[in-house]
Write a protein that binds this DNA or RNA. Structure first.
Lengths: 215, 215, 215, 215
DNA sequence: CATGAATGAGCGTTCATTCAT
DNA sequence: GATGAATGAACGCTCATTCAT
């Protein structure tokens, strides 16, 4: 089974495809035993290229880690953004975003786990993820539905709960319900009344997946 | 300056003291550049023993990591337990526990960071920490002050926010206020009304430190 | 700025020009960090061709090293020969040759250093340089101005002092005077009376440069 | 056949002996194909230890190169110094020193060649060798037997001719006579009249050898 | 001829681990 | 127990070289 990065560049030049294969293999290995434990030899082997080939595409391991982590984060952000383009309500947007984020991450566990592991070693990635989340929080405050002050700390706490969701879903065998439940807890954290938080976060939605279920 | 494990076994046999010195040195090195980057040679050197001696006390590095992490967790638990022995109110206990936990961890950053890094690779450690936290959550539910259902997920979310506090405090330069603020957010998560949550979590308390300030 | 080999083949076929560009780039890289440290990728890149192209022009790195070193040696020999075509006196010829050799080498440090480094690993190159120098030594003996027996050893010593000059001039920051001073020492080595040696070697001459100063 | 460094530490601790074995092996490999071409794996293998052992004794290759080169230089200096302790005449001292230096170097070709190769990459080594040579040159000037001005350049030229002797003797198969002949040339370079230069440099002496001939 | 992605042996170096003393 | 020299597999990375396009 080829990876997601590879699928996205099907038909492009050889170099681009090899690079994508390496990124897929890297995500796989990062998820297995952590980023540090993933050796470049193992990644190259999993990508079916020789170790030397790796260095035709990435200066070093750090560059690879960055490319993979930011690649995943942007992919998630774009998918979620697109899927909630016509949702205006901040409460809906936040709960939808959290649920889809957790679900996307668990639909491709190697991606979810890579992201989770990278976020602690790449401050820039943390900022990127945080700023993505923040927009809707600010909107909710403006609209008067979030009765809290939104500061950096609150955003970090939202993120930590979201990541815990990814962890439980990908590493602890949690089921798809945790997304909704975490979204509900987050809404309460934002000052949304419990009943509305529950209702909003459990509203049935079509869950995204990195790969179409049929593939 | 001798480490905390060493202080706790002062007066015991030489073997016990050597083991403790190794654990102190390990915590130090773990915090410096991460657990994986800490070499046993460097730990042994920092503990002022030869590298071979290490293997008289630990089967391998994993055993050391476990011993250090559990040692730290138990130390924290005992200190916090003792310090809140005469607090009965669950609201107070939870906010006190969180604040002290974050503060203890940041009073000895090498311990806090070691704990944070180990918690994701040692499921048993996570369970231990969770079960420690859970007791007071259940008490609050029984007492009717936490108007939520306490399940494993909620405990995990509490833990993730607490660990985020440790991270911000030890790695991102956050000040001592984050402890109180995180406690406040946690109380709201538990269904405590905002005003009370704020009041309870900002009540002045005497913050613990792994080492007495005078030492 | 194009290199000297390239300039000498301006107007010739494309293949010849590519080969010359590679040789210029090689001399540049050899001088920068030594022959061994110069990678073929880096040389090809500096020559603005792909790495594969290199192997259309040279069997391997050794062949390149040889081509560059002999190319430089011949270039120097031709320039010096031409410049002293109308000098008959052996004393003058030797001192002129040494001074120009050192000055040429330092006017294009990458060439001088490449030559210096190659001379110890390419015996044939050493012989070539030696035989070039030898002609005038024999002439001086025939003319009775060099009162020594000229044998292989003496030629080697002359060469070693000349190369020391190149080294001092290109690697140790020595000024243009060393050429004259070394020539003077060499003349004394050849049995020329000190006063004459001094006079002959310090006579003002127009120093050559690999590239015309105006270019 | 064990190496010279090893012989000098026979009977000392294991660590010292292993270090000496590594230095002997290194000199051997340095001489074979140059310092850069000598891999640490090959050196360790030649010393009959595993590659990892190398790093228990030297921080890196540079440290090894330094230890070997300075070790050899000091050994030579001490032997020569001792052997000419009772020679007062500067003319004798210079010619004796040069002849013994070249002979010592060729009695242990791997040492001579290592020294020759290291001298161009270790400026400190060049300075050390130069300063050793300089003392007798200054003495000769004071005594009025060297009728030249002794400056850095002259010392460098003396050195370059001496090293050429080592090269010819160890790499080009030159016989033991070159030592005397080079010494003669050097004396003339120092302004000693040809006849005296010849006489002084060809006086029969007992040539040193790094190892006693019988071993 | 030129290209440049791919190769894989080899490099210097690290490190958990063993074991004779 | 404690020592510390020795081990050797594994690491990240480089580079001369090949070859399909």
């Amino acid at each position: 089974m080829t990876g997601v990065f590879a699928e996205r560049v099907r038909g492009e030049g050889k170099s681009v495809r090899t690079r994508a294969r390496l990124m897929d293999a890297a995500a796989e290995k990062f998820a297995e035993h952590g980023i540090e434990a993933a050796s470049i030899n193992a990644i190259a082997h999993a990508a079916d290229v020789s170790n030397g080939t790796f260095y035709n595409h990435f200066r070093d391991k750090d560059e690879l880690v960055g490319a993979v982590a930011f690649g995943i984060a942007r992919d998630f952000a774009e998918r979620i953004d697109a899927a909630m383009a016509d949702i205006d309500d901040a409460v809906q947007r936040v709960s939808f975003g959290t649920r889809q984020f957790i679900e996307l991450a668990s639909s491709e566990p190697s991606w979810g786990q890579s992201l989770m592991r990278a976020v602690w070693s790449l401050p820039a990635l943390r900022r990127e993820v945080a700023s993505f989340a923040r927009a809707d929080l600010d909107r909710g405050v403006r609209d008067g539905v979030f009765r809290v002050e939104v500061d950096d700390l609150l955003v970090d706490l939202m993120m930590s709960t979201g990541l815990m969701g990814v962890y439980l879903r990908t590493s602890e065998g949690a089921g798809p319900k945790v997304g909704a439940e975490i979204a509900e807890h987050q809404l309460r954290l934002l000052g949304v009344p419990p009943a509305r938080a529950h209702r909003a976060s459990h509203r049935p939605i079509e869950l995204l997946a990195v790969r179409p279920p049929q593939a």
